[in-house]
């Protein structure tokens, strides 16, 4: 509330970080920015021939753009937040069409089903445990080192 009514002078920089045109919904504005960054990511991936998917490049570009903004302007990312959080909350819905593709490979899955189920379940359990334990161990080590560093200082 410390910045009352500065919104009369729009700029492209402000537009990215939260200005919503009159009558426009934040969801629509946020979704528009997500698509703009996805398009930029696709274009960059195509132009450089990098084997990285466009949306992943778009994510990196958006992260850079958000980090470049005025750090004090915390409320500014509101429309992007509305759209991104909305999609993240129902991320699992978006995997349903790909999952239904199981129909296409029914024969292969019947033949190799047991072996594949064993491989998928065992490898996922191993990956969850290995990643979780490694990250937790390194977090504790980093916290200890940080403590030691501040003690010395």
């Amino acid at each position: 509330m410390s910045r009352p009514r500065q919104r009369s002078r729009p700029s492209s920089r402000r537009a990215l970080h939260g200005e919503v045109a009159p009558g426009q919904s934040p969801l629509l504005a946020g979704l528009t920015w997500l698509l703009v960054f996805q398009s930029a990511g696709e274009a960059l991936a195509l132009a450089t021939g990098a084997p990285v998917p466009g949306p992943v490049v778009g994510m990196a570009l958006l992260l850079v753009a958000l980090r470049l903004r005025d750090a004090r302007d915390a409320a500014a990312e509101a429309p992007l937040g509305v759209a991104a959080d909305g999609l993240a909350r129902h991320l699992s819905l978006l995997f349903v069409p790909a999952g239904v593709g199981v129909m296409l490979h029914a024969a292969r899955l019947v033949d190799e089903g047991a072996a594949l189920a064993a491989a998928l379940v065992a490898s996922t359990v191993l990956a969850l445990a290995a990643t979780g334990l490694t990250f937790q161990w390194l977090l504790r080590r980093a916290a200890r080192d940080g403590q030691a560093g501040s003690d010395r200082a």
Binding site: L31, F37, G41, P55, L63, G81, L87, A88
Partner: peptide, 18 residues
């Protein structure tokens, strides 16, 4: 149309990261 939204959802992961 649902499948397509995976793209913008991946882009949107930059928001919690930021």
């Amino acid at each position: 149309f649902v499948h397509f939204l995976l793209g913008p959802a991946v882009v949107g992961l930059a928001v919690p990261l930021a």
